[in-house]
Nucleic acid binder design. Structure first.
Lengths: 260, 260
DNA sequence: ATAACAATTAACGAATTGTTAATTTAAAAA
DNA sequence: TTTTTAAATTAACAATTCGTTAATTGTTAT
């Protein structure tokens, strides 16, 4: 960095008091609804409870409220890298799809000053969340359904951030193959349908007859075949069902040639 | 703002040296290609040439290079508001669709220090750009085609920003009705096709037979009818063509019920 | 007149959709 | 063992939409 430049150019402007990264961690949890039935799936978000006191013993800003995991960004890292780091620090989870979706920079959103937050969302398969653990400045970690989360008194502007994260994840689910991040490598059509229905509510998805007729020919999934034998499972049903996996096909859609 | 909080919480962290907003202003210019022919349309981006010297007479960082319009954000405004303000200051244009699309916060991207930039793009109809003017810290304003812009030696990481802006605008054009921001209120199908082709290259769009058969039934456009009489124009052709306008329908598409 | 040409309509086989019904399969109940 | 049950899968079919080629219309230029 060149102090020469800093002197006359930057110092004319007030600089932000902080730069933070928040992460909305989504998962879909399955609840058994009966034997030989596909389990019911619900979208949940992971929040941490802010401690009442800081490590130094001062009363913590927005202490006691539920908040998105996150924290201050270090100058040598980007907001994205900070999101990856913090998610790992606070939950022990690595190697996930993390995506930036918004900037929250309204003055006054954080009493500590002019604090800019970059918001990200992450999608975690259920099984990875078992080993989650609370971090230094979080006393508790918990999963909330979308119904529950909007009842809570959330810290800062996190309610708004979560609403927008939800909107983004719905959009992503409709337009990309993110659904694969909620599913095991090999899955059955009813599992895919269950995941999609947690965030989308297109009528044809709910109609089994339509979904099961069309889904097998979706270009971005394929039947799992081993030595010419289609692989099946009876994980969720008496009758064995075909296993599918996502392939590398990147679907592209446009409103100009869609069906309405 | 509460100094009590600032003391122990924020000051533990280094804060950014600056917070800026950049805007990629896109327009589509029409060039006459012959009488009674729809004009050819080309996507262009507006850049400003950075002055060699600052107002104070110092040599300007990245002076002489082409750059995206933009500047430092004031604490009382959001990055989005700054984008609106700067676009108005630097081009005199207001009332446009401006959208945030990315954060550029890699340390070292700006020699002046740890400077975070929020990037936005704007879509300007050709006719609004006529009254564009250079602003205080810009000596020149010019439009470049996508081919031209990537030949230039651009300031900072603006090449990357423009590449990503282009990607976003393509996506937006496919999934939303932004195309309307490039078109007059009332337009003809070939104009719509021309606009779409500047950024999309789906084969069926190029095939007139397919485009002109399907387009009239797109749910988000409608024929302009006055007193029961369909309105037509011979702006671009000998034979009068039906005028269309966008309506309020918000198209929704998904990869799970698209055609492939 | 008539040739040219974009816009528009017509026509038609092929493919896809929405829907209902039938079949398969294996566990559970009788 | 036989029957029942429920999900997965296939079959069937009319209605719709698609991709394509051909014909028609309206206006200008020759």
């Amino acid at each position: 960095m060149n102090d020469n430049f800093l002197n006359y150019d930057v110092s004319n402007y007030r600089t932000p008091d902080g730069y933070t990264s928040d992460i909305a961690v989504f998962t879909i949890i399955s609840t058994e609804v009966g034997q030989y039935k596909p389990p019911e799936k619900t979208l949940k978000i992971m929040l941490i409870k802010r401690t009442e006191k800081t490590k130094e013993g001062h009363s913590n800003l927005e202490g006691g409220k539920w908040a998105l995991p996150g924290g201050f960004i270090k100058p040598e890292e980007t907001a994205y890298e900070a999101a990856v780091r913090e998610l790992s620090e606070e939950t022990g989870i690595t190697g996930l799809r993390i995506k930036h979706f918004g900037v929250y920079d309204q003055f006054g959103r954080d009493k500590r000053g002019w604090i800019i937050s970059n918001a990200h969302y992450a999608i975690v398969p259920e099984n990875k969340l078992v080993k989650r653990r609370a971090a230094d400045d979080a006393s508790e970690v918990e999963l909330f359904s979308m119904d529950e989360v909007f009842q809570l008194d959330l810290a800062f502007d996190h309610k708004q951030i979560i609403e927008e994260a939800l909107w983004f994840i719905k959009k992503d689910m409709s337009l990309t193959t993110v659904a694969k991040n909620f599913l095991p490598k090999q899955f059955v059509l009813s599992e895919l349908q269950g995941v999609l229905l947690t965030v989308m509510d297109e009528p044809w998805l709910k109609l089994d007859a339509q979904f099961f007729r069309k889904a097998p020919s979706l270009p971005f999934i394929e039947k799992v075949v081993k030595d010419g034998v289609p692989q099946k499972t009876n994980r969720w049903s008496k009758n064995k069902a075909q296993l599918y996996r996502f392939n590398d096909f990147e679907p592209y859609v446009s409103i100009y040639n869609a069906k309405y």
